[in-house]
Amino acid sequence: MTSTDTTRRGEVSIRDLSKSFAINGRPLAVLKGLNLDIRSGECLVIVGASGSGKTTLLRVLAGLEAADGGRVLIDGAPVQGVGTDRAVIFQEPRLLPWLTVLGNVAFGLEVRGEQRARAEERARDYIGLVGLGEFADAYPKQLSGGMAQRVGIARALTVQPEILLLDEPLGALDAMTKITMQEELARIWSEENVTMIMVTHDLEEAVYLADRVLVLPKEKGAAARLIDIDLPRPRDRSEPRFVRYREELLREFGLH
């Protein structure tokens, strides 16, 4: 399932990006003058205080929200609305309750005009990849939260995007499931040559998954911090350097 072409795909370049919303008729700057280059195939994790604009940034990258100023280029081309080079995994699985797991995972490809049989064939591969092979014919109602989220992940992977955008995908899961899913995400990311841009509140998760962590500032216009996580994979959460990175992130939040 790993893409064989060697051209650099899934590169993102963000230049002087700004975005504000009107709240009670007054503009509220959410993102201001953000610059960032995301490398092909990297895993960038975005953290920041609540309201710092993480979701907004992700939605701009997804093409669900238009920027007010600045530019976002993906592989050199400006983002204009949603595109087939990107897939989004939301905090909720957002499964269609009337489709089975197989139907849901094939949905993305079918919507893009793939024939049902071929879409389902590919969907089965990814259902296996997220470990739900036995549940292909189950309905969303019959799944646990973690299983449902894995279906959402499989659906996004099935369209083989260059860029995977994830907004707190594990935020609603219990601690145990979360750790398992973090390991699965790390594995999937290393198997699927894909650029992963993920928002999280969980600093350990950030250190576990990220090549680089982007810390969005609370004060608009202040420079966003980028922290390289220079650790071998698979990562060991108890190793001293891992713990030090976590503490460094905590300090970024002024919590340590």
């Binding site: 669900l64 990107r86 939301f90 909720e92 957002r94 269609l96 949905f107 919507v111 369209v159």
Partner: peptide
């Protein structure tokens, strides 16, 4: 659920497809 509609849009569904499938 508007979130389902948004999900379909993210996968590139046209208005007609959103209507038919969601």
């Amino acid at each position: 659920d508007p979130k389902l509609i948004e999900m379909a849009r993210v996968y590139g569904a046209t208005r007609l497809t959103v209507f038919r499938r969601v």
